[in-house]
Simulated assay, not measured.
Amino acid sequence: MLTQTNYCMTRDTLRSEIDALAYLTECTLATVSDLASKSKPPKGELRRQISIAQTGINWVKLHAKRGGSCGNSRVQEIIDKDISVEDWADAHRKT
Rank of each mutant, 00 (worst) to 15 (best):
D82R: 06
I83R: 02
S84E: 02
A53Q: 02
Q4F: 05
A20G: 11
A20W: 05
D12H: 11
T10F: 12
T55N: 05
C70M: 12
S51N: 10
D90V: 00
T3G: 10
A53F: 09
S51T: 04
P41Y: 02
S37H: 02
V60F: 08
R11N: 09
L21N: 04
K61L: 07
Y23Q: 10
R74I: 15
R66E: 15
E77P: 07
Q4V: 12
K61W: 03
R47I: 03
L14K: 07
T31D: 15
K65D: 15
L35W: 07
K40M: 05
A30S: 14
S51A: 04
C70I: 11
S33H: 14
G67I: 09
G56S: 08
Q54M: 01
K61E: 08
L62H: 09
N6E: 07
S69F: 03
S73K: 10
S84K: 01
D19H: 12
S51K: 03
R66Q: 12
A64V: 11
A64R: 15
C70W: 09
R74E: 15
A36I: 08
A22F: 10
M1K: 14
S84L: 01
Y7R: 03
A20T: 09
K40Q: 11
Q49M: 11
L29Y: 08
I79G: 14
K65Y: 13
R93S: 14
R66C: 09
S51H: 02
K81D: 15
T13M: 10
A64Q: 12
A36S: 11
C8A: 08
T28Q: 15
V32G: 11
K38F: 04
M1F: 14
T95M: 01
S39Y: 05
S39P: 04
T5M: 08
K40E: 10
S39M: 06
L2H: 06
S16L: 14
D80L: 12
E86A: 00
T13V: 09
V32E: 14
N6P: 02
L24K: 09
P41A: 00
S37M: 03
T5R: 13
S16R: 05
L2M: 13
L62N: 05
